[in-house]
Computed example of a mutant assay.
Amino acid sequence: MLQEYVKNVQPEFMERFVQKAPSQVVEAMRQTVTSMLGTLPPQFFDIHVSTIAENLAQLMYSVMMTGYMFRNAQYRLELQQSLSQPALPVSSSATTDSRYAPGTQKSAVSGDVVRWRKDEEKPERVDAIEYIELLEAEVEELRKQLEMRGRGKNELLEYLKSLQPQNLQELTTSAGEDALEAMNTFVSRLIGVAEPTQLKRAATQTTAAELARILYWLMVVGYSIRNIEVRYDMERVLGMPAKLAELPPGENL
């Protein structure tokens, strides 16, 4: 399935990725490519990059693995955030207005509210105070996310920076054989050189702007390979037949 994906994926899929993927992932990829190639505007500086095919192949593989790592990190970050929110959260600030103290006075609140359970397709009664505390916790979490974005910080990159080297390495060493083979196949498809001796001799040259587009595309492919790998594992566990890898880049499972 992964082999089929890397044989057919096209650069145009990047547009769909930008539309569907979380904004922090898209921005993390852009920042990574920019840090690798610099920030000189291509409309004013015509920069060319020359190397041998072997070096370019290694760079492509590394960048694709970075995209794979971003998806793995996002999985873990989302899980960590979901586990950090208790079912009955402690009351917290429901507003960012500094004129008010955290929390609200709920001693006079009584009764319950009705919520619709989509999974069971029936109404469910929830204690009114518990529901208020749940809303307060959600507002507080949103406030923290807005503050981080306001400071220009990327939550995904900040999470990666906080990891110990061993934990960071685990984000890529967990890649299965199918994923690694798919990455190598994709690099071979782009390089167009199969013989190892030719890789060491064949020279290649491109502009910095074009290389940036290629590297960004490779991150998208690496990210999508992890998406497909997880979906395939789920189908295998559930005993479902494997399907053609049609998952658009950036689309969550």
Rank of each mutant, 00 (worst) to 15 (best):
T104F: 02
S93T: 03
K122D: 08
A73H: 09
Q166N: 14
E158P: 06
K243N: 07
Y216G: 11
V114I: 11
I47V: 15
D178I: 08
L56F: 07
R125Q: 14
T34S: 06
R125C: 14
G239T: 12
L190E: 13
K7M: 15
T32K: 06
V220E: 06
Q198D: 02
Y216I: 07
E12C: 01
A194C: 02
R115T: 15
M148P: 05
L238M: 02
E27I: 04
K122I: 00
K106Y: 11
D97K: 12
Q105G: 11
Q145F: 10
P11G: 10
M148L: 15
S91D: 00
E27P: 03
P248L: 06
L59E: 03
E210I: 14
P248A: 07
D119V: 03
Q145K: 15
N184S: 09
Q31F: 08
K243C: 03
T51P: 00
G152F: 03
K200E: 01
T51G: 08
I228D: 02
M1P: 01
A212I: 08
L146S: 13
Q10S: 11
G239Y: 07
W116H: 05
F13W: 06
K118G: 04
Q85I: 15
E177V: 03
L244Q: 10
A182M: 05
E251T: 09
Q166C: 10
Q205H: 05
V230R: 15
R201H: 02
N72M: 15
Q81E: 10
T197E: 08
A73V: 00
S98A: 01
Q205S: 08
D97M: 04
A209C: 09
E138T: 08
A101C: 07
E147Y: 08
A87N: 04
L180T: 09
S62P: 09
G67F: 11
K118A: 02
Q169W: 12
H48V: 01
L156K: 06
M65D: 12
L88K: 14
E140S: 01
D178Y: 10
N72T: 00
R125A: 14
R115P: 11
P165Q: 10
L247G: 10
L88N: 12
Q10V: 15
S91N: 12
I191K: 06
K118V: 05
G103S: 02
L168T: 12
Y68V: 04
Y131Q: 15
S84T: 13
V221W: 07
E147V: 06
A175F: 13
E121L: 05
G150S: 02
Q81T: 15
Q43K: 14
G192N: 07
T206G: 12
L211A: 07
L157S: 07
W217R: 10
F70G: 09
K122A: 06
P102G: 00
E195F: 12
N252H: 15
I214Y: 09
P41E: 06
T185R: 11
V63G: 09
Y223F: 05
L215H: 01
G222P: 05
